[in-house]
């Protein structure tokens, strides 16, 4: 049987990856970003920041798909995402 395209063993299409930047000392530990990240990239840190809150840490950096929801929902302007350049 002939296929126009090779169905198996073909390279996966490239997914867009994001790079998360966290400004720790501006965070107030509301954990909106951790809850609403669709791919559970973030989790609560065990360390304290300058003000005594627990900022988020990046647990699975490869899972981020640059949707930018954490940036939209952060009330303290403490997290933002840039597209990863390769």
């Amino acid at each position: 049987m002939r296929f126009w395209e090779k169905p198996f063993g073909k390279e996966k299409p490239k997914t867009i990856c994001g790079e998360i930047h966290i400004i720790d000392d501006r965070c107030k530990g509301c954990s909106f970003c951790i809850e609403y990240c669709p791919r559970d990239v973030l989790e609560l840190s065990e360390d304290f920041n300058k003000k005594g809150y627990h900022p988020p840490v990046i647990a699975k950096p490869d899972m981020c798909t640059f949707c930018g929801l954490c940036e939209m929902i952060c009330p303290d302007f403490a997290i933002f995402v840039t597209e990863k350049e390769e």
Partner: peptide, 20 residues
């Protein structure tokens, strides 16, 4: 910055949405 709004307040998100 940092602003005076409490931890968990939705005002910051509203400002982000407004600017966007």
């Amino acid at each position: 910055m940092p602003h005076i709004w409490c931890s968990g307040c939705g005002l910051g998100s509203a400002v982000t949405s407004f600017v966007e």
